[in-house]
Design a protein around this nucleic acid. Structure first.
Lengths: 349, 349
DNA sequence: CCGGCTCAATAATACGTATAGAGCACACTA
DNA sequence: TAGTGTGCTCTATACGTATTATTGAGCCGG
């Protein structure tokens, strides 16, 4: 088929009997195109459609212009099944808002091979987009720092801090939500709590723990037990079984769990508790601090809080577009989590 | 924030005391870099790492033509909830394969406002990608024809025909799958069947109907009833109730349904049948010809066939990349559907 | 008749990279 | 010594767009 090269602005200029500069003004000169006479403008557009012109994004972004494209980059794979339930609503929100604003969405997955790093092969693919929404718990700080240094506009979904840098994000109020959960448990009469967190040091993990400590403090309780669960979950069940035994010995009546992005830890806990003959919530109250928790029919309805994930995705896009228009300092947005009653929390025995 | 621009090859050249061309040879001259002396090469690489050089992809692809981007365009919105279950696996497959091949995926959603047309603003946005996967039942034929005329590489998911044009697609074998379903019903003893199809004239609709007629023919039955259900489903239930009554009067014992991309028609039929006191499959066998049919716990497990949707997405990408490498004639792929037993089909009363 | 003004369109240039071809130094051959 | 390679680096240019400065035309008032 006609494999002739794509028509360029020069071709259009030639066809319409004007200069390339004029074509550029008509095609992409948002408000500057008011300088172009109406009949010229029409002639250019006519030639453009006739030749099937499309802007060359590479050239445009080389020059520094806008592509009407936003990017979405995830440090964790968004699509694999086990985490899909968690990340999908973000994608949904980002996609929806992007479309609403007349942009297209570029999913950066080419980098997904091996470790996910923006600069992994030395190049920064992200820049083909006008700006980018970032996502994921296990981020690479140096990549992020480089991104900031380049002045590339991006918004993180989730609170992220970098020493000496202010970056933009839309983040759930994990501190408040976790504190509220603690208060709820203590209101029910629980006095000995346990807290189970992943081993990482990311902000979401730290924020929840901070909320836990704040809640404990507020309730006037002494310091409570905090345990770490390594990311490598090969022996998760054995560890949980050991923890469970210890909790029972220590008189723990309620446990709060930071579930990461999937529900493996929760599922493992449920199995281990069942094996130990423990009923939830009669013998042990369990509160889940976020997570996907689809709570399909048949599954347990965990007492938890949820993130307004789709809205967060939309908000991130809105923030990003604000930054594109006016890059003065970072934009930040904190969103409240929603408490879900569930049936895994009760009064202590 | 240090708004300094990124180092370029010129900067490195300056630092290493060589020319920009030499830097380019070292950095990206795959086999041509053998021409560069070892000590020069080392000096360049040293300067590159020292300055934190990263390739500017925009410039590179401006020079080379390819963007390493594939597009995904859907004539129906992919993300809205009611059809999400149907389209999502395609997206999954397309995204996965795209990533595997080292490409990024551009979701064309900016056009989603109003009617979905590729050329809505006169210019063809799709071309920003190297090629495009198309999706959706209600396509715009003229847009498609224009796309072909431009020589733009694309692959349709689903069989599409254009008069005088050969286009590439990966399509499910609706004819065969539907015929098999008819055979199965007649093998069970059904002699009077009804067929319910959408009102459109798209290939998937026609193919299934063709399969139905083929199966009926093969079973040696006379012509069977075929009914249309308008897309506007405002009075769907009333229509279905009327149809149901008629089927009973005519002695119909089994009905085959082309469900479009959502399960509204099926859900409506189930309600109407229940209201009429009809049990499925005891009083009426129902076979579903495709559709999302998540069959979650609690829902009925419909007798149906399913499309290998994720694989189809992957295959479409593979075909597209073949075309990009070697654009000689259209590529076509037919994939078999998988029969799902389910419990909505039984022997006739 | 000229200076000052506005409106339209253009010429020129820069963005960062890849590559073809030129140039140069040196060694080897006839 | 002239001729022919060979090995390495450089010069020059093209890719397609956005933008700045400039030109030119037309008009008005003095």
């Amino acid at each position: 088929m006609s494999q002739r090269r794509r028509p360029t602005q020069v071709d259009i200029a030639h066809a319409a009997g004007v200069s390339q500069a004029t074509v550029s003004l008509v095609i992409s000169g948002g408000h500057a195109s008011g300088q172009v006479a109406e009949h010229t403008r029409a002639a250019v557009l006519d030639a453009a459609t006739k030749l099937g012109y499309t802007v060359n994004t590479a050239a445009r972004s080389l020059k520094g212009g806008r592509n009407k494209m936003l990017g979405l980059y995830a440090f964790e794979p968004v699509f694999p099944v086990d985490q899909r339930d968690f990340y999908f609503p973000f994608l949904l929100g980002v996609e929806g808002a992007t479309a609403d604003f007349g942009y297209d969405l570029l999913l950066f997955s080419s980098v997904s091979s091996g470790e996910r790093r923006i600069y992994s092969d030395g190049i920064n693919r992200l820049k083909v987009a006008d700006g980018c929404v970032l996502l994921g718990r296990h981020i690479d700080r140096s990549d992020l720092a480089d991104l900031v240094n380049e002045g590339f506009p991006f918004v993180f979904i989730g609170r992220r801090e970098l020493p000496g840098v202010e970056l933009s994000y839309v983040a759930p109020d994990y501190v408040g939500a976790t504190r509220d959960m603690v208060v709820r448990l203590t209101d029910l009469g629980h006095r000995r709590l346990a807290y189970l967190r992943p081993a990482d040091q990311q902000e979401p993990t730290r924020d929840r723990e901070a909320g836990f400590r704040a809640g404990v403090d507020e309730a006037g309780l002494p310091e409570q037990a905090v345990h770490e669960m390594p990311d490598d979950a090969s022996d998760a069940e054995a560890r949980l079984a050991a923890l469970l035994e210890r909790w029972l010995a220590d008189g723990v009546t309620a446990v709060l769990i930071d579930p990461l992005e999937d529900d493996r830890t929760i599922a493992a806990l449920e199995r281990v508790a069942a094996e130990a003959g423990l009923r939830i919530p009669e013998d042990l109250s369990v509160a889940v601090l976020g997570g996907p928790m689809p709570s399909g029919p048949g599954g347990r309805d965990w007492t938890r809080f949820t993130l307004p994930r789709e809205e967060m995705g939309r908000a991130a896009v809105a923030l990003l577009l604000e930054i594109l228009d006016d890059d003065t300092g970072p934009r930040r947005l904190s969103v409240a989590c929603t408490a879900v009653d569930g049936d895994s929390v009760g009064r202590p025995r």
